[in-house]
């Protein structure tokens, strides 16, 4: 019952937040200007009649509030409108391009998590040792390097100099690697995934290490050792479980922001993902795409935050549901 009340409250809050975000997206983009007038500037031959017809075709002759409510209503039916540039439904565009983004982001988060647990725990067990300093130094470097810089460095070394890996795109236009499209796709994924993994790993490792250092110092871990629980089990089951809880917040944020951070990576590697779609839409003022993609990114973030809260309550009995 208590859980139900908690979930309902959180859900209501998430819905209010989503409404606010959608209004912000709509009115901010609306404030940029009327896309038809901007198109007109590029195509001088347009007559008044054509302009009026285009305005009514895209529903731009209505007052902003009406248009917002119409957009919101269609959004609830997962109808994001039609792209001005591609003349395709925005929903299917987001799905196709979004899939490409997930293809590099999800593996990067999973690999980063595995590395962070391994190195974070090792460093924490040997606090102040050389391996601890090596891990921390690398992680700090990862946190402070600008993302695009490492991307360019990777391209320079592995594509330009060594010519081992492709520098752009998600697949070869002709002659896929080894004649296999799957292998070819994986081959193209290596560099973008490597770059994303490096950045995700940095913060995750530092978090893992500091949480683990605290947990390993606590008396309940000493109590487990004193009761004869094997050291491996103490570290990798009990201490890890306790140290992992604060990581969930960051992990939730990472998953939620997956689409939001995509533009940088995808620009560096010319990856045909949601980030590239988003950046192109901004340049071309393809406002249905900008609004649809923004709404999806916000929705993802709100959902993962909600999910993180729920997981927290499920795994930590101390967190009150009040």
């Amino acid at each position: 019952m208590q859980v139900f009340v908690f979930l309902t409250r959180r859900l209501i809050f998430a819905i209010i937040l989503m409404l606010g975000v959608s209004a912000a997206i709509f009115f901010l983009i609306n404030a940029i200007g009327n896309p038809i007038e901007l198109m007109m500037a590029e195509t001088p031959g347009m007559t008044g009649e054509v302009i009026e017809r285009m305005k009514s075709y895209y529903g731009l002759d209505q007052p902003p509030l009406t248009r917002y409510l119409l957009w919101l209503g269609r959004l609830l039916h997962l109808d994001f409108g039609t792209s001005i540039v591609y003349n395709q439904p925005v929903g299917s565009l987001i799905l196709t391009w979004g899939w490409q983004t997930l293809k590099i982001q999800v593996p990067a988060i999973l690999i980063a998590l595995a590395i962070a647990i391994l190195f974070g725990v090792t460093a924490a067990r040997r606090q102040h040792s050389r391996s601890d300093f090596a891990v921390m130094g690398t992680a700090l470097l990862g946190q402070s390097l600008p993302a695009f810089f490492l991307g360019i460095l990777l391209i320079f070394v592995f594509s330009y100099t060594l010519d081992w890996l492709p520098s752009y795109g998600a697949y070869s236009t002709r002659n896929p690697l080894g004649g296999s499209p799957t292998l070819d796709a994986l081959w193209h994924m290596v560099l973008p995934v490597a770059m994303l993994t490096f950045f995700n790993t940095a913060t995750l490792t530092l978090l893992m290490r500091s949480n683990m250092v605290d947990v390993l110092k606590s008396d309940f871990i000493a109590a487990m050792r004193a009761s004869g629980i094997p050291e491996r089990r103490v570290i990798y089951v009990h201490a890890l479980r306790a140290a992992f809880i604060p990581m969930l917040t960051y992990l939730g944020l990472l998953i939620g922001l997956m689409l939001g951070t995509a533009p940088v990576t995808e620009s560096v590697f010319t990856w045909p993902g949601l980030g590239s779609l988003y950046v192109a839409a901004i340049h071309q003022l393809d406002y249905p795409v900008i609004m649809g993609a923004s709404a999806v990114i916000a929705f993802m973030l709100i959902c993962t935050t909600l999910l993180t809260d729920v997981i927290y309550v499920l795994i930590d009995p101390r967190i009150s549901l009040e």
Binding site: S218, D219, A223, M224, P317, R318
Partner: peptide
């Protein structure tokens, strides 16, 4: 242990 707050796993 000295501190029964810290020596029991809170979870």
């Amino acid at each position: 242990f000295q501190d029964p707050y810290l020596s029991l796993n809170p979870r």
